[in-house]
Simulated scan of single mutants.
Amino acid sequence: MSKDKQFRLPGYQQYSVPKGPNSHGSMILVRATIPSSEVEPVHCGDGVEAQAVRIHLANDSLVVYNIYKPPTKRLEAGELLTQATQELVLVAGDFNAHHPTFNSTTRMNQDGHHLVELLTDGPEITLINTGEPTHILGGTLDLTFISTELVPVAQWEIDDELTSDHFAKTTTLRMELLPPPPRLPPRWNTKKANWKLYQDELQKWFSNYEPAEYIDQLNQDLTDAIQHEAEKAIPKTNPTNRHHKDYWFYNDEVREQNQHIQKTSPTIPFP
């Protein structure tokens, strides 16, 4: 969307990437009564357009990705779909990927093979398309992925009336039907605490403490001292990730290596 033709929809928070020399333009609209914030999207391949917005829910949050992969670009979706190991996600867009998994009548291309491999290796993410064509010529170019734990409360369908050359897709998530997230385990492992060390360190702090003049500062100082001495004497618990035991973090170095592996992996020729 060009800057001279700005779109506004009253009652909605608008997140948009304007159309430009290297962008086809994209937009995510969130009802203004729902808290939301823009998120820096992960890298999905050179020339692949990605947009992300976090929807803040009562007990959790959902990151919504809007993707467009031009037909001539190569998709790198490993980091994108791995997001489901860390948080609730909905990933939707035009992937220009072809595979019989998406549509039984289509022929496979490299991007389709790439996505199906990721789905096979990542049980935390699920494709929820029903197999119906998303393009008026019969192709299935538009795909919707969600965190697997959302599948029981999800509904995906085609809108036959709202269309251009692609049909509109509707994904409904009944988030209120999800069970509440599990309570986090206690931060401190008090069963292994060195209580003598804790008491000695706290006593040492108190003997050197000059009491604050105001009660609020006194309260803050005492709280900080308890926290500090607990760090020395009480070991922390070691909770596992709530989504997957192999939870791992991406940083710039890991991201670079991930991209290098995907780019240098042997390619399989597809017709």
Rank of each mutant, 00 (worst) to 15 (best):
D4A: 07
N59R: 13
P179H: 02
T264M: 11
Q155G: 11
S207H: 09
F145C: 10
H114N: 06
A193V: 02
L177H: 10
N251P: 04
R8A: 14
T126S: 15
M1K: 11
G138P: 08
K196S: 06
D60F: 02
I34F: 11
Q199D: 05
Q83D: 06
K19N: 12
Q155C: 10
E253P: 01
V53I: 08
E79S: 12
I67S: 07
A84I: 03
E213V: 09
N189V: 01
S37Q: 15
H244Y: 14
V30H: 12
T170W: 12
A230C: 04
N103Q: 04
S265A: 15
S36G: 09
V153K: 13
H56C: 14
G25V: 07
L202Q: 02
L118F: 06
H24C: 12
E79L: 10
T170N: 12
Q110N: 13
T33F: 11
V53S: 04
K245D: 13
S36K: 13
D160F: 11
R107P: 01
G139Y: 15
I215F: 05
E201R: 08
L119N: 05
P123H: 05
K73M: 14
L173Q: 04
H135I: 09
F7Y: 09
L178T: 03
P152G: 07
S26D: 06
K73N: 14
F249T: 14
D216N: 09
T163G: 04
H113I: 05
Q259G: 09
I268N: 08
Q6G: 06
P180S: 13
R242D: 02
N22P: 00
K204L: 09
P100S: 03
T267Q: 14
R74Y: 10
Q14V: 10
N66Y: 06
A154G: 11
D221P: 00
A230R: 00
I136G: 04
D200K: 04
Q259S: 15
K3V: 12
L90C: 10
G112Q: 03
T134A: 05
P180V: 03
N258F: 07
T134R: 06
L88M: 04
E161Y: 15
I28Y: 06
T172I: 15
L178H: 02
N59P: 00
T223Q: 05
P152W: 12
V42A: 11
I125M: 05
T101L: 06
V42M: 11
L141K: 13
I55P: 03
H260Y: 13
Q217I: 03
D160S: 12
P186M: 01
Q155K: 14
Y247G: 09
H114Y: 08
K191R: 09
P35M: 13
G122N: 15
W156S: 07
Y198S: 00
P182A: 02
P239R: 00
N189E: 03
R54N: 08
T140E: 08
N238E: 08
L143S: 14
D246P: 02
S207C: 04
V151P: 05
Y198K: 04
T163I: 10
P185I: 01
M1E: 12
T105D: 10
I128E: 01
I234E: 01
Y247D: 15
W156D: 05
